[in-house]
């Protein structure tokens, strides 16, 4: 569906199901240079579980209009406005990589809007190799290839896939190619510049789950464990053998963890 935020059209997937009043919201936040196509195997599953799913393309990504937003803080403000536009008082945030930083910042700015957070392949800080940023600015297709190379684990490099017939590598390259030419470099610079993660993590009061990958070369599991260590109410899981792109590389494990976490939240809310 499409909806306006700050005068720009935002494109989002609701997982194939229209939002219904009274259902809990789950907002998916994609990583650098990606878009809503990070979440095909979570968005439909949770929508049909009964959640109001929001898997949006950030401005300048995928099919969303406007220039890519610079700065994690600005991106977090935008995501909160998207919640307003959709009439979502509160949501569980599921952030992959850079999306995790955005979730941290959303919780800092508006803790009452954040019911819980799931960090996937994320950390409190995501330093970026300056050469990669330069490449994203000057030769974006080469940068996409490098990102995709590092973002996927050994099985994905062998084109093993739970989705019959699909190639992680070539799917991801096409997803990245669809966005504004400045989307990736803007995202990488936003990650590199963001320094508020530790403080935001220490301040988190909501329930949190961290899902990490043992073969993650982009945000190593070590950095994810450090993030988990800063958070009061946090459960942590490391998925062996997966690369950084857990939602599509290991959808079964990720969805099982998501479902268990969401059920516990719902049970607590009911109690």
């Amino acid at each position: 569906m499409k909806i306006g935020v700050d005068g720009n059209e935002v494109h989002l997937s609701t997982g194939g199901r229209t939002h219904e009043a009274g259902r809990p919201f789950v907002m998916f936040l994609h990583g650098s240079g990606f878009d809503r196509h990070s979440w095909p195997l979570q968005s439909r599953a949770l929508a049909y579980d009964g959640y109001n799913v929001i898997a949006a393309d950030m401005p300048g990504h995928g099919l969303s209009a406007g220039a890519p937003l610079a700065g994690i803080e600005t991106q977090a403000e935008w995501a909160l406005k998207l919640l307003d536009a959709l009439g979502a008082p509160q949501a569980v945030l599921v952030g992959h990589s850079q999306g995790g930083l955005i979730a941290l910042e959303m919780a800092k700015k508006a803790p009452q809007r954040v019911r819980a957070i799931v960090f996937i392949g994320s950390a409190a800080a995501i330093p970026v190799n300056p050469q990669l940023i330069e490449q994203a600015e000057n030769d974006r297709f080469a940068a996409y290839a490098n990102m995709v190379d590092w973002a996927y684990g050994p099985d994905a490099h062998m084109h093993e896939n739970t989705w019959p017939g699909a190639s992680h590598i070539h799917y991801a390259l096409q997803v990245m190619s669809m966005s504004d030419p400045l989307a990736l470099s803007t995202d990488l610079k936003s990650c590199a510049a963001y320094s508020g993660g530790e403080e935001a993590a220490r301040g988190l009061k909501c329930p949190v789950m961290c899902i990490l990958a043992s073969q993650d070369k982009m945000t190593p599991a070590k950095a994810g464990k450090a993030l988990a260590g800063l958070i009061a109410d946090c459960e942590m899981h490391v998925i062996a053998g997966s690369g950084h792109t857990l939602p599509t590389e290991r959808p079964r494990e990720v969805n099982a963890l998501l479902r268990a976490f969401l059920s516990r939240l719902d049970a607590q809310a009911a109690a």
Binding site: G16, R44, N161, T162
Partner: peptide, 8 residues
Amino acid sequence: YNMEEGGH
């Protein structure tokens, strides 16, 4: 059936 997840 609903193409929510991969598999056969």
